[in-house]
């Protein structure tokens, strides 16, 4: 198992390196540059040249990339052009916020999605199944940013039950209940689509398992229905559910980009949107690098968990 994990981690290095080259090229190929974003209306050629010299952007592309990689290997992510702040400070600040939001969403979508999936599989074509499927389809089809605004209108503006945006209250807050209050709406919104996907796949996986011989055997042994479903069927279905949750991590991280913008959640997604529009290359690189690493790790974790659950995969 250790050798397997080591091999997988090594395989991730070229993926992340390739990703950084793609990000670098895309950022260089889209028109506009940080000097223009900084200077706005005042971006005369003279001023742009002065700023580019100060930021080291007057060097050739390969040179810039090699310098960045070289610094990165020494643990230096560089300085944001626009924020004038070390990239690593900004990315770590943001990363913890995204981790909280994405973690909470994953938790919600896994628990709700799996429960909904099991219930509708067990009561296939019954009323419960139809109702669950109905809501699941609405969840999958609803644009999350729109749903986010609707929830803000209801919970923050109309009923004044929850804060409209932010991660902590700007005065008197900062503790765990404060964080949870701010977390409910964005995490809930972000979880809705993923919940639908997890529910659909759990339902399919459960239906397949429930048709198999060992389930009939278990029932024939006289086990209670709960034991059959949760101890035998669900455990077998989990093998195909876990990778789905791993993939949902990517979805949740991607969804965080607009959910964080709507809810003013101070995370990586919101940072990336702004960094791209101001062509803040090093900040984009830092953010993408961290998000990609997280995605690779979570999927590795999912694969390991799957291997542990399914003896056939251990080879």
């Amino acid at each position: 198992m250790t050798a397997y994990i080591g091999k997988r981690l090594l395989a991730a290095i070229p993926v992340i390196l390739g990703l950084s080259i793609i990000v670098f090229l895309v950022m260089k190929l889209i028109p506009g540059d940080p000097a223009q974003a900084l200077l706005g209306s005042y971006a005369t050629p003279d001023n742009v040249e002065r700023i580019n010299r100060a930021l080291g952007l007057d060097r050739s592309w390969p040179e810039q990339y090699v310098i960045w990689i070289g610094n990165l290997l020494q643990g230096d992510f560089g300085r944001s052009y626009i924020l004038n702040r070390p990239v690593i400070d900004e990315v770590l600040d943001r990363f913890s916020a995204t981790l909280i939001l994405a973690g909470a969403s994953l938790l919600i979508c896994s628990v709700l999605g799996i429960l909904a999936g099991i219930v509708s599989a067990v009561r296939q074509f019954g009323w419960t199944d139809r109702i669950v499927t109905f809501f699941v389809l609405i969840g999958i089809s609803m644009p999350a940013f729109f749903l986010g605004l609707v929830l803000i209108l209801l919970f923050a503006v109309q009923w004044r039950l929850l804060p409209a945006s932010g991660m902590y209250a700007v005065y008197g807050g900062g503790d765990l209940p404060d964080l949870l209050r701010h977390l409910i709406l964005p995490a809930g919104t972000l979880a809705i689509v993923a919940t639908g996907v997890v529910a659909r796949l759990t339902r399919a996986a459960m239906l397949e398992v429930l048709r198999q011989d060992f389930i009939r055997t278990a029932r024939a042994k006289g086990l209670s229905e709960n034991a059959v479903i949760y101890r035998h069927a669900f455990r077998a279905a989990l093998v195909s559910i876990i990778p789905v949750i791993g993939i949902q991590t990517g979805f949740v991280l991607g969804g965080a980009v607009y959910i964080e913008t709507v809810f003013q959640w101070p995370g990586l997604g919101q940072m990336l949107v702004k960094a791209v529009s101001t062509r803040d290359l090093l900040l984009v690189q830092g953010g993408v690098l961290v998000a990609a690493t997280l995605y690779v790790l979570v999927n590795l974790l999912a694969d390991v968990a799957q291997a542990m659950l399914d003896p056939r995969l251990k080879a």
Partner: peptide, 10 residues
């Protein structure tokens, strides 16, 4: 508060 709608909601 970057999003104008969210700013109004706040």
């Amino acid at each position: 508060i970057t999003d104008a709608n969210t700013r109004v909601a706040e």
